[in-house]
Simulated assay, not measured.
Amino acid sequence: MKKSKILIGTVIVAIIGLITVAADHIDAPAAQGTSADITDFYAFEGENTDNLVFVANVQGLLSPSATSTTSFDENVLIEFNIDTDRDAVEDLVIQAIPRDGKMYFFGPVAPSSPGLTSDIATMSSVKGEVDITAYGSSAIIAENSAGMKMFAGPRDDPFFMDFARYNEVVGGTAPGFNNPGSDTFAGSNVLSIVVEVPKSMVGTSGTINTWVEAKVKQ
């Protein structure tokens, strides 16, 4: 599970029985090497400063050849959680789940119940879908009537980490990181889910907490 905090506006800006697992570039035992492996989560103000962008990357360290044959798992729900009153409990969720070559989005909507299990909010009045972009193809972006934009598909892994040097530093055999370091993830890919949401749909001012979860059908 990945967490972030965003200041909005005032500064610069139904499947049942799903259970949460979390990871970070295959280092979490519960999700290591699985289709529910979350590599990174990003949340930031959009180019349109009235919007927020949420990005979840899954299934990291894909080689180009592996990327062309890897797809989103239809048994894995990706859920963006939004806490608007700073009590560390989600008040809104945006859910994304693949079906037959499309990624379906539901919300922002209040969850049926907060916590580690979820129902998919198929009855939400706010929803959208986008064709999953094939590897090597131009990005397919869809927009719904609420002004949300959506994307799903493979992308180059944006995370920079000199993993070998990190192990040396942690192990006490190196005094610090090199500048520049070596990008361990260069040439590898992830599967990305991106949704851009008007701020008015998640609150127009104040601080929100946000995190992402992968929930697997049991």
Rank of each mutant, 00 (worst) to 15 (best):
A36I: 03
F159Q: 09
S63Q: 05
H25S: 11
K3Q: 14
E168I: 01
V202H: 00
S192E: 14
F41H: 02
G203A: 07
N189L: 11
F41S: 02
D40N: 10
D156M: 12
Y135H: 13
S188C: 06
A88P: 05
L77F: 00
E90I: 03
E79G: 02
Q32P: 04
V190I: 14
A43W: 01
P175F: 08
L191D: 03
P198F: 08
V216F: 00
A214D: 04
D83H: 11
S205M: 04
T122V: 15
G171Y: 04
S4R: 14
M150N: 05
V109Y: 00
A28P: 03
D85P: 07
F105H: 05
A31M: 10
S138T: 10
M201N: 01
N189S: 10
D85E: 07
Y135W: 06
F106G: 01
T10A: 10
L7Q: 11
A96Y: 10
S200W: 08
A121V: 01
D24N: 10
T117W: 06
L62P: 03
F54H: 02
P108F: 01
V216Y: 00
I12D: 07
T39I: 07
K2Q: 09
S4F: 14
I82V: 02
F177G: 00
E143T: 15
I140T: 11
V53C: 04
E196Q: 15
M123S: 15
W211M: 08
A66H: 12
F44E: 10
V89T: 12
T84Y: 01
L62T: 11
S137D: 13
G9Q: 10
K127G: 09
S71N: 12
I140V: 14
G203F: 01
V11S: 12
M150A: 05
V21F: 10
I16W: 12
A96C: 12
G107L: 06
K102D: 12
N178M: 07
S112T: 08
V55M: 13
A56D: 03
I140N: 06
V197Q: 01
T49W: 09
R86K: 14
G60K: 04
E213S: 15
I12A: 10
G128K: 15
K2V: 04
N144D: 15
G17T: 02
V190D: 15
A28L: 11
S192V: 06
I132K: 12
T70Q: 13
D24V: 08
I8K: 12
